[in-house]
Write a protein that binds this DNA or RNA. Sequence first.
DNA 1: CAAATAAAAGACAAATTTATCCTTTATACA
DNA 2: TGTATAAAGGATAAATTTGTCTTTTATTTG
Lengths: 146, 146
Amino acid sequence: MFSKSCEYGIRAVIYIVSASKNGERVGISEICQNIDAPEHFTAKILQILTRNRIVSSQKGVHGGFYLDDYQKGLALIEVVTAIDGKTLFTGCGLGLKQCSETNPCPIHSKFKSIRNDIKKMLEQTTIEELGNSIKKGKSVLKTLKI
Amino acid sequence: MFSKSCEYGIRAVIYIVSASKNGERVGISEICQNIDAPEHFTAKILQILTRNRIVSSQKGVHGGFYLDDYQKGLALIEVVTAIDGKTLFTGCGLGLKQCSETNPCPIHSKFKSIRNDIKKMLEQTTIEELGNSIKKGKSVLKTLKI
DNA sequence: CAAATAAAAGACAAATTTATCCTTTATACA
DNA sequence: TGTATAAAGGATAAATTTGTCTTTTATTTG
Ligand code: FES
Ligand code: FES
């Protein structure tokens, strides 16, 4: 569904929101420990999100990553499109060069419906909402004991 | 969503069903020309499907691939699981080592719902049904002019 | 200003997926 | 029976994704 990069990216932003009380910044090593992701690789993904103004960052002492109020309200789809692009929402389910209404593949109609459901879900879900779920202990960002 | 292998595999079986009138066999090169897929690679995917008894094959003169009546009635999910496994239907949307009801990730509930929709769709769609759509000219298996 | 800190960036490496080529095996049919 | 045919299978290669390591840049703080 999502690429590994995207999975790490989503987990990272959710962790940042859930962990940074009153504008505190969260370092990359703390993030990766808590979401069980490779540090340098995840750092690169956060660079993408920072360039796309989905997360904020600060270098130097007491630096780290954080989300401002506007960014917290962003929907998950912003994170996904920044990392994986929009192929998931526009591409053909059978890999035809382009999804088309006039020359559809055999599963076009059924696939389109699912594709739209995914899009809708990602549009309706905010980063903050998921962060709150973590804060409340209602969900986790890494599998506990293997 | 699906791997390239799976996309080729699905398109191949649909083409075979749509093209083999009265039990005729279809050769790999004909298949690949009509679904716009790499020949040797697709051949390997059809080997997997043949080993899993989702398609039938015959070596030698007048040999090729075909589906018997039972196979035509198989649902698309058989093709997908044979090639991509069942991760799409059981795995965590955020890539946690395992999807769990008791320790869910923040999007578990919403993702599970979509995952089930995909599964249901693939269970309810038969290969034959999609082949008929091609036969009737209602859909295509490759993008015409680029 | 100098030192310490942490993200940004670039280069490289491993792993996986996708793709190609060549040989072997089974089958039909002349 | 032997030859042509087409799938099966094995080995290899290219491309992409994922992961690691090192250097550079920006920022804070003393
Ligand atoms: S053409 Fe395949 S999903 Fe639209
Ligand atoms: S735990 Fe993530 S989808 Fe179930």
